[in-house]
Design a protein around this nucleic acid. Structure first.
Lengths: 252, 252
DNA sequence: CCAAAAGTGTTTAAGCTACACCCATGA
DNA sequence: TCATGGGTGTAGCTTAAACACTTTTGG
């Protein structure tokens, strides 16, 4: 085999790989971090300071470091950008995006992640960002609101959103959106925010409490809201991860 | 920003990216191609000819080419290695694996895909492979059969297997495992092979035929088996992709 | 007392399970 | 006529949907 001095990778590949077969790629992680704020499903975006896509909004993320695993890179970015650790929230791989022209500068493959977090304070813009803030998902997708998105991030967000919606059906991950302890009303608000509206509260309550390990009662009661109402029982997250049978969203 | 002459990527990055932030990666696709042969769930593996892991079995796959999208690379490999086109079978992203030490030679990020195919002829080994064949999934995972797997492919296979099993519950993808036209008995055999056994045939039939768009009756009847039995009605795949409510495997 | 939110009971419809039974074919 | 596989009918159970109703709090 021949050595191509122009490519670091080729110089490092000892055997079995023909350098003419491949080019080096940059690998990044992009995060779709979802949370609920004032009853709306929100996503964390950062505003780009530099070209390409200067002033456009983009998913938080960054390069995977040379000695770092991809999942580790994602949790690092999650902690840096949203101050969320993996234990209070939830982090999973979403999909990988690698069209040759998704970044005009060079060949970049991005591994997208999906993260859920309980309500968080406003983020601070990082060094390479002009701004950072939570956007309501409706405002992002409406197009009218003036959120212009960088790269293929519109596609990633749309895939992430569909995944969140689906995950609430057959997992207990909705509980990752609320801080402990929480009421069944809080949990119900997560479903209505993520799905858009329906979900009969009365049957929802029965479903949640009858699913072993979804929520665990804790002592005490919530304070009633400003307009009154009975104090609600408090719960924390249980050990169950799956929901059998699933909680269906009203779209059939 | 400075230019690092040792890295092709860095030399190409015009703005906004600091070359000290990242290293170049090789990007590959690996395929978990599943099919049913003689009533058993099988997976396509190739035997490696070169070190590392010479003589060990590995998932078919290869490098993503410089001007090629990742999904395109996967369909190209699927066609090359298994002679399956995306239209008769099914191809979707599984997950991305990128631990720093998963390949001892260099930093490789692999995007794994999941593919389903109807029964296929025996594969032929490619140029860089010593052998290629279908393995029953039980024999691969048993450990006793002597199938030693390269890289982290044991993990990828295990993730792929779990995904196939789950997908049969809530999608109509089982029909991608059978050639058209097929009988309900053929389809039932897919479920028992993938899940391990149960599935009540009598209720299974009702579920499949009552799900709008799962299967479409075609004219004609199958020839009975060697030991007799009635001729079975024939079907082709319908347009539906999802199964609501799902077909549960007996594990609750 | 009224509005708002928490929580319970009950009726009805739908879906799934299990099992019995009949039909068509080849040996 | 028997074994084998295809296919239907039906009773009974479990679950989910819909809606009525009670309780607790703040104004």
């Amino acid at each position: 085999m021949t050595i191509d001095n122009e490519a670091t990778l080729a110089a490092r590949a000892p055997d079995g790989y023909d350098p003419s077969d491949y080019a080096p790629f940059a690998v990044t992680v992009d995060l779709t971090v979802f949370t609920i704020r004032t009853g709306r499903l929100c996503l964390l975006l950062v505003q780009r300071a530099e070209d390409p896509y200067a002033r456009a909004w983009a998913l938080p993320g960054g390069f995977v470091k040379p000695a770092e695993g991809i999942d580790s890179a994602a949790s690092r970015e999650l902690l840096e950008e949203a101050k969320v650790d993996v234990f209070t929230g939830h982090l999973e791989q979403l999909a990988t995006y690698g069209d040759p022209d998704r970044d005009p500068r060079m060949r970049v493959v991005s591994v997208a992640y999906l993260a859920f977090a309980p309500d968080l304070p406003d983020p601070v813009a990082g060094s390479d960002a002009a701004d950072a803030r939570w956007w309501a998902i409706d405002d992002i997708l409406d197009g009218e609101t003036g959120v212009s998105l960088a790269f293929d991030h519109q596609q990633i967000i749309s895939d992430g959103l569909e995944r969140v919606r689906a995950k609430l059906e057959y997992t207990t991950l909705a509980a990752r959106f609320v801080a402990e302890p929480f009421t069944l009303g809080d949990l119900h608000a997560v479903y209505t925010a993520v799905w858009g509206m329906p979900v009969r509260l009365t049957n929802f309550r029965r479903k949640v409490t009858s699913t072993e390990g979804f929520v665990i009662p804790v002592d005490g009661h919530s304070a009633p809201g400003p307009a009154g109402g009975a104090p609600a029982a408090l719960y924390r997250r249980g050990p169950a991860n799956e929901l059998h049978p699933p909680l269906r969203r009203g779209e059939r």
